[in-house]
Design a binder for these strands. Structure first.
Lengths: 223, 223
DNA sequence: CCGTAAATGTCGTCG
DNA sequence: CGACGACGTTTACGG
């Protein structure tokens, strides 16, 4: 990793064109070849960047000149450097990587284990049930034996309801399954999504992750 | 802006929980209070971060200890530092900011000026035509006088088709407008979106931004 | 490599 | 403050 603080202006020509006037900024060159330009605000988002794979060509003398970063698609990041104020390189090695917990995949796993969350007598037909337009998160049967397609989101928004609607339309063309009902499950469901779901006859279920997780944790069980 | 390269492990407890094992990483503290943790890959996204407003509490002696970053929602980023390998602070000042060109608003402006892009004899009824569920990008009439709703995207994907479908459903309830046709216009249209559009009777038009822009530029005109 | 869905998305705008 | 849509979304995952 290479850190350069420099007075520079930047031009990006690619999916759009963008220009940054001359100012002092952090230039971050990573081992994967990527380059990002940070100001002292806007949280973690760089002002400009080039994602790998890309190539950096430096044309600098006496601390002034240009960096040209190019990717395969022909997008270009042109950094005009007036003066370098600080520079430091450091070998970080390979990062062991991030372990996450509480994302959609985890919710899906837990709900697959506990479909009774949706109602007594429910059973799981299949997780990631395949259709022509992609897999349905959960396919279940309720206590009466009716087939139910469950779409799971961390945050339930309108596009999730649209997604489930497309699945239901397709599943209901299958005479072996039809009629198929829909359940939209999420930790939090936005009002607009709820309204749209109701309009389409889809049930909404909000899921308490902590409770599900507790149910999954052997140390939390009484028996 | 403060740059710290340190051997550290990180725990995030908030919207999800995440853990980073001990390794050497870049800690970036910006003037806006944000903290981000970068590995030596991925230009855009840090491994972990906390967006402002948040507070950083340092409890470090002899280069080892913990940083605790907390925000208003009670989310926490706990950085356990084993050793600081490099540190540098630098005052960057306020950034003059980014100038962009070529996004959806610009496409809409240009297409509103040149509805003949869609066909000879087309005219614009209104840009941002209001409906109960939001404004339609362009409402036009074709050469035969039929009303057409145009949805504009930079990249045409399936959710854009869904959006236009909802508008068409609503507009077609208005006896003064019906029947209303649909046009899905974008610089690039994904195959799946194209299939869905066709299935719904919506025409797809790919737009060349450079040509439109040229048409708009007085210096490029012959007369 | 392409296409699709998820994201601690983030960031603006508008009610 | 919440909802909604755009983003050079980026990133991960599956065929």
């Amino acid at each position: 990793m290479r850190l350069v603080i420099a007075r520079c202006s930047v031009d990006y020509i690619g999916r759009l064109t963008a220009h940054l006037p001359m100012a002092t900024r952090l230039l971050l060159v990573k081992a994967d070849g990527s380059v990002s330009i940070h100001a002292d605000d806007r949280a973690y988002k760089p002002l400009n960047w080039m994602t790998p794979p890309c190539t950096l060509k430096e044309d600098v003398t006496d601390g002034a000149g240009t960096w040209t970063v190019t990717n395969k698609a022909g997008e270009q990041l042109i950094i005009t450097i007036e003066a370098v104020e600080h520079e430091h390189s450091h070998d970080l090695g390979v990062d062991p990587g991030l372990q996450k917990d509480g994302v959609e995949a985890e919710l899906q796993r837990l709900l697959a284990l506990h479909v009774e969350t949706f109602g007594q007598g429910w059973s799981l037909v299949r997780r990631e049930y395949p259709t022509a337009i992609g897999p349905v998160d959960l396919l279940c049967r309720d206590a009466s034996g009716a087939v139910v397609a469950v779409e799971i989101k961390r945050r339930g928004e309108i596009d999730g309801v649209e997604q489930l609607t497309r699945y239901l339309e397709l599943l209901n063309r299958d005479p072996l399954l039809a009629p198929v009902k829909g359940v939209f499950a999420a930790q939090e469901i936005k009002p607009q999504a709820r309204v749209l779901a109701q309009d389409r006859g889809i049930d909404c279920v909000t899921v308490d992750y902590a409770v599900l997780k507790g149910t999954d944790d052997p140390s939390q069980r009484l028996f």
